[in-house]
Amino acid sequence: MSSVAEIFLPTEIVLQIVSRVDRSLRGHERQRTLYTLCLVSHQWYSAALSFLYARPRLEKGNAYRKFTAILCPPASAPKTSKDLGRLVRRLDLSRLVHHSSNSMTARLIGRVRENLEVFIAPASGFSVNSFSPLSKCTKLRYLDLSLVNESFQFDSVIKSLRYMQHLVDFRAPGFMRITQDTVALRADSGGPTWPASIEQLQLSGTIDINMGTFRWPENITQLTLKHCMNLSLYVMTGLLGNHQLDENLKRLTVSTYNRGLQPECIHLIPVFLPNLLFLSIPGDLVHDIFFSMMKHRGKKLALEVLELGHTHTGDKLDFSIQSLINVLDTSLPNLRAVGFHTMYGDDHPDLDDALLKRAEEKADELPISDETVEFDAGTYYFD
């Protein structure tokens, strides 16, 4: 019987194969396949290991327990030469329920801190003790604490961000407290400031200060207000009147998941922020006066996309589509697209025709700028 000769593949070829698998598969199928490749040989193990640990999926079965047992072994466990924590680039714990304790989450963050770029915290198991190891994750680009059930003062949160000079997108804890005792972000404070790299911010929690003096990230371009506990007219007036937002903000999303929000809060947005390119707001809080105030003000807005999000108060819009069409030329010369949540049902052919006609007329004009929001012209629908 003739023996089968082994075929040797250069490591560069093996890496190309593993990289293709990593890009083409998703979720648990990707993880299972990469794990299988690690079992082929020492060569394949070395090639596939970094891909396997880069974006682990931990929510099914005993995956999280096994993962933490490897990265955070007890002190009595034998020492290993490999520091696998440095291979983790994305750690998503959002699907975990009661898998972890506060101490384990803090230990795990400490083990993956070296090269972590994306971190999504779990609802349970993240506490103030996690801020210390989190502050050492200096390569983070995306940080999402919005699911965390613990309550924090904003000073504690901002201090943990001070060394994250690559952080672009930050989603604050849902139960964060910005109160009169908060000193870190007042304009007259010498305390810690936001990382200069932050461009996208989701703000949540209880706001109990004059937002007109609030110190926003200096390069903020996108702001989402979601799960704010008291987004009253007083708070919104101060927030919208903050000169930093008027100068820098290009995209604003006001979620329906805010308490205290009134139609008057929404009607003030075009008045205070005429330079917005994208605006997403709860559809039920938009009244005809929203558009008549634009016309009365007599200034043209930069707005390119208006999105009318869902609501819990009903499935009908409380304004006339004609009132929007009437201000297209006078107040909204750049509006290209209007989005409707699917809960509102019917098509809006008159508005669609008006937007498409405008797009055709402008087709031969100068190219759009880098700041333009990319949406096809006309109306669209979303869930």
Results as ranks from 00 to 15, higher is better:
177 R>D: 11
196 A>F: 11
23 R>N: 13
362 K>I: 01
57 R>Y: 08
83 D>E: 13
301 L>C: 10
314 G>W: 07
297 R>T: 11
260 G>Q: 04
69 A>S: 14
213 T>G: 07
284 D>Y: 06
290 F>A: 15
343 M>R: 01
362 K>F: 06
6 E>C: 05
272 F>N: 10
72 C>N: 03
210 N>D: 15
196 A>S: 13
237 T>N: 09
346 D>A: 13
21 V>Y: 00
291 F>V: 14
128 V>S: 15
75 A>E: 14
194 W>Y: 01
220 I>Q: 04
369 S>M: 08
28 H>M: 14
202 Q>D: 03
300 K>I: 05
170 F>Y: 07
82 K>G: 04
377 A>H: 07
157 V>T: 02
283 G>H: 05
262 Q>S: 09
73 P>W: 14
331 S>F: 00
227 H>T: 07
218 E>K: 13
209 I>R: 11
84 L>R: 11
197 S>Y: 09
178 I>T: 12
332 L>P: 04
49 L>I: 15
45 Y>D: 07
33 T>S: 14
185 L>P: 00
94 S>M: 03
253 T>P: 00
57 R>L: 09
340 F>P: 00
197 S>M: 07
275 N>L: 05
295 K>N: 13
349 P>H: 05
9 L>K: 02
109 I>N: 10
53 Y>F: 15
306 L>V: 10
242 N>E: 09
201 L>D: 05
65 R>G: 00
335 L>R: 07
191 G>L: 00
110 G>T: 07
296 H>S: 15
83 D>K: 13
159 K>A: 04
114 E>R: 12
114 E>G: 01
77 A>V: 02
101 S>Q: 04
135 S>I: 03
347 D>W: 02
334 N>L: 02
156 S>P: 01
262 Q>D: 10
142 Y>I: 10
358 R>I: 02
270 P>K: 12
235 V>P: 04
48 A>Y: 03
146 S>M: 05
278 F>L: 12
22 D>V: 03
221 T>N: 11
285 L>M: 12
248 N>I: 07
174 G>P: 03
128 V>L: 14
83 D>A: 13
149 N>K: 14
108 L>P: 11
271 V>N: 12
149 N>S: 14
130 S>C: 15
300 K>G: 12
274 P>D: 08
139 K>L: 08
382 F>D: 00
256 T>K: 12
207 I>W: 15
261 L>D: 12
85 G>V: 10
320 S>L: 09
351 L>H: 03
324 L>Y: 06
29 E>H: 08
235 V>D: 06
72 C>R: 03
196 A>G: 07
183 V>P: 01
66 K>W: 12
128 V>D: 13
121 A>E: 11
25 L>Y: 03
300 K>H: 06
44 W>E: 02
208 D>K: 11
143 L>Q: 09
299 K>H: 11
107 R>T: 11
251 R>C: 10
319 F>D: 13
343 M>C: 00
